[in-house]
Nucleic acid binder design. Structure first.
Lengths: 187, 187
DNA sequence: GTCTATACCCCGATAGAC
DNA sequence: GTCTATCGGGGTATAGAC
């Protein structure tokens, strides 16, 4: 594995755990086993490295969600598969986490991949709900975009509740609650 | 207004905007218009000041939620009032935000008020759902704790989506989606 | 490509004068 | 109560040798 790859790995890990503001070049170098000069040879600086790490992580999340949502089954089944996928509730979402970082939100460049991921996710969930509605699974009055956003929010909000509690339990409750409400909306 | 109060105000503001890790004593002093010596006279340090600020903010959030949930109306109406209350989606939740701060989660003392607020909120929402179920508003099969957690998560997750998008729109969609799903669960 | 040296500023806190 | 001085350390980056 190349030094550049190890630097990106280390940065992803630290961004997840400590956020952008809380992650220093020195910490990245230590975790990657790379020296100061090495890091600044491969990347222009902290922001450049973070951008590479965020892009890669966002792409991985997109793939994971797509695997749940594009698989076999009815719309309700696919949404349930997305909601009930096993997640490390206490670690939180490696991309959603970044929305709380002032330096990420303040930088158009750093926010872009985060924006694109959640934009895609809401649209993808919305399309599944639309398919379900077209197939007669859901009440016709349901707003697909609103339900899509609510499903994405259940997961992201579940992480917040779990981290506040120091326990995975509230996350599990939130996604189970979302599942039961989705089921209740079937026609 | 006393210097101590201005310091707490400034700290609350900065914790909301920049989090614990991103907030420095110097920035607090500047915003409060207080000197170094003044701050360390009134508070033992950054953590002590943050604790006072977080406790106060959590209490304000609790009051606001209680006002929505204890008011008149059916269970469904009260939950809708909570979900649809006007919020500054792009600023996010001043308490929920702290769950992404590694130093907050790592400190039992700093996490305690955050934990207590969300613990209370989930329990309060759960009790409203229970009341609704007892009154025949909801299907009897609904799990109150799960639905309560899902409602809290819709708001917290809505903030994440809004900040990712740089727009309040996804937040509004998420809470509207939650409302429509709650309505669909009526018996 | 990687190393060490250096720079400049901020962090969080303490000390002691006033 | 508030001020200034001071401290040891880290943040983020550049320079130039190897």
């Amino acid at each position: 594995m190349s030094t550049a790859d190890r630097l990106i790995d280390a940065t992803s890990e630290l961004l997840w755990e400590r956020g952008y503001t809380g992650t220093s070049p020195k910490a990245i170098q230590r975790l990657a086993g790379a020296g100061q000069g090495s890091m600044y040879h491969h990347f222009a600086g902290k922001q450049d490295l973070a951008l590479a790490a965020i892009r890669r992580t966002a792409e991985q999340m997109r793939s994971a969600a797509e695997a749940d949502l594009a698989g076999p089954g009815t719309a309700v089944e696919r949404i349930e598969r997305y909601l009930l996928r096993e997640r490390d509730a206490l670690r939180g979402c490696p991309v959603g986490r970044l929305t709380q970082d002032p330096d990420i939100v303040a930088s158009a460049e750093l926010r872009a991949p985060v924006d694109e991921l959640f934009d895609w996710l809401r649209a993808r969930l919305t399309s599944v709900v639309e398919q379900g509605r077209a197939a007669g699974e859901f009440e016709a009055s349901l707003d697909p975009a609103a339900v899509g956003a609510a499903v994405a929010a259940a997961v992201q909000g579940g992480y917040v509740l779990a981290r506040a509690a120091g326990s995975a339990e509230p996350f599990e409750q939130a996604v189970r609650g979302a599942v039961s409400l989705i089921r209740a909306a079937r026609s």
